[in-house]
Structure formats: structure tokens, C-alpha cells
Amino acid sequence: MARTEPADNLESLLRATAGGDALAFRRLYEASSPHLFGLLMRMLQRRDWAEEALQDCYIKIWQKADTYAPEKGQPLTWLMTVARYRALDLLRVRRPEVEMPEEEDAPPMTFADGAAEDPQLRAVEREGIRRLNDCMTGLAPEQRRSVLLAYYEGYTHQELAASLKAPLGTVKSWVRRGLQRLRECLEA
């Protein structure tokens, strides 16, 4: 996936935005909004919801740009985290029933595609991707599938149970054990 702005640049745009520089904010929006909007479209599945959520995200970013700190991840990671939490909040209110994604629209069951060829990726990030990739591969297939569906679709335990055609308790333990194993592997 191509990034329109290198991370260093996003960081300085975020800093300028925190200082109230509206032009920097506009540039930050131009550089990052397609990434946030892609995530919101994927998770919310409706353009009108995604557009409204995108507005909410950038209002928050304008107001809270000063709370960004490197410990919260790369700038784009932080921005996308803002969007993901917003999407989860909206899904909680607005999706009473499970809507299954179309087959060609299915969630990416692999990840970090193209990461190896991206020259702008920092070594430490590349290492994080490799690590997560390895550890994901080590999960049992149903654990991996549960974790990825929850991440990409914003599915609740109930929605996972319906989607994976398994009892609720079973699905809950797939998620829990999946996360536990992931952590053990990442720590190792």
C-alpha cells in the first residue's frame, strides 16, 4: 500500500496542527484521510456512516493533536487507531444485526501486503510486521480467523458466533486463547 507522505512528514504536520496551524491540518487531512476513510468504509460498510465518522475523527484530531506521543505508535498508526475506535463506537449503536460481507469483499485474511517493498517503512516497523505475521501463523486456524474477523469487521462475540457457526462460548475462548498465544509469541 502506497503512503502519500512519509511518516516524518506526518509527524511534523501533526505537531503544527497541535499548534493551531490550520494549513498543516489541511495537509495532514490530505495525506492521511484516504487511509482512515478506507478503514471506515471497510468496517462500517456504508458511505454515509463512514463520511460522518471521518468528520468526527478529524474534529477529534484537530482538538487532540497535542496528545499524540510517539509511544502511541507511528503518526499514521495513531490516526488510524482514532478511526478504528470511532468505527467500533458507531457499530455498537448502529449495527443491530450481522451483515455478512460479500464474497469478493471478504476481509483480508493476510495482512501487511506489500510491506516488504515499501522503502519508507522503518526497520522497527518492518520487524513488528514480520513478528506479528509469524505469530499469527502460529495460531490455530479458528483462533486466527476469529481475531482477524473481529479486527477487520468489528464483529462482537455474538456476530463472530453467527459468522463462524459456532457456539458463543467456543468463539469467546477462540478469541481469548488466540490473543493469549499471540502475546506469548510476541513476548518470546
Binding site: M1, A2, H35, F37, G38, R42, F111, A112, Y151
Partner: peptide, 12 residues
């Protein structure tokens, strides 16, 4: 966070 990289960018 690396999972975020699979979302396809869409220009609003």
C-alpha cells in the same frame, strides 16, 4: 497496528 496496513485507501 500492522493489521491496519491491509485496509485499502479510499479518497473521501
Amino acid at each position: 497496528a500492522p493489521l491496519q496496513r491491509s485496509f485499502k485507501p479510499v479518497v473521501p
